[in-house]
């Protein structure tokens, strides 16, 4: 699957491994809003910020978060049902966005929420082109899969020929 260079710009989704530092600013602002509970909420947010890890590769997206209670979510591009991009006022001021991905699981919320994404349009369009039905790639994909699936059969044939030849030689020696 060498379709990573779909986007016209030089956007590299694999470079996104951490939320942007501005997310910490956002978390500070959110913690300040909780007034007295600031130390608690900020600690929680800070740990979250420090432990958030994203991984976007050829097959799918995964994220992990948490220090004491670790959480990891993995999904493949083809199982993505819809992509959400959400930006509230503070997000927009900071230039951040929240990208949520949904699969067909029964969970009530989004399966994966990538917070602190600085370039949401590029990431979103990258994920979109990886989604099922985004492009007319279905026929080509089937053909490629067919070729791949037929290969073992050809190998079996070759193997059989080799066995036959070997047995012929053996047979010749024996007689």
């Amino acid at each position: 699957m060498s379709e990573l260079d779909v986007s016209p710009t030089s956007f590299d989704p694999r470079a996104i491994t951490r939320p942007d530092d501005k997310l910490l600013t956002y978390y500070v602002l959110m913690s300040v809003l909780t007034l007295v509970a600031f130390p608690i909420t900020f600690t929680v947010f800070y740990i979250r910020f420090k432990t958030l890890r994203y991984r976007i590769d050829d097959e799918g997206v995964s994220m992990s978060v948490g220090l004491l209670f670790k959480k990891e979510v993995l999904l493949t591009y083809r199982r993505i049902q819809d992509i959400h991009v959400e930006r509230n006022l503070i997000h927009r001021w900071l230039g951040l966005a929240k990208v949520s991905l949904q699969t067909a699981s029964g969970a009530s919320g989004a399966e994966m929420t990538l917070e602190g994404i600085l370039d949401p349009e590029a990431l979103r369009d990258f994920l979109y082109t990886k989604m099922r039905g985004a492009r007319g790639e279905t026929e080509h994909a089937v053909a490629a899969d067919d070729a791949q699936a037929l290969k073992p059969a050809d190998e079996a044939l070759q193997l059989l020929h080799e066995i036959r030849d070997a047995m012929t030689v053996q047979h010749g020696q024996a007689s």
Partner: peptide, 11 residues
């Protein structure tokens, strides 16, 4: 809050 959703007809 600006929300955007993208979905393909295939899904």
């Amino acid at each position: 809050i600006i929300r955007e959703i993208s979905l393909t007809y295939e899904n």
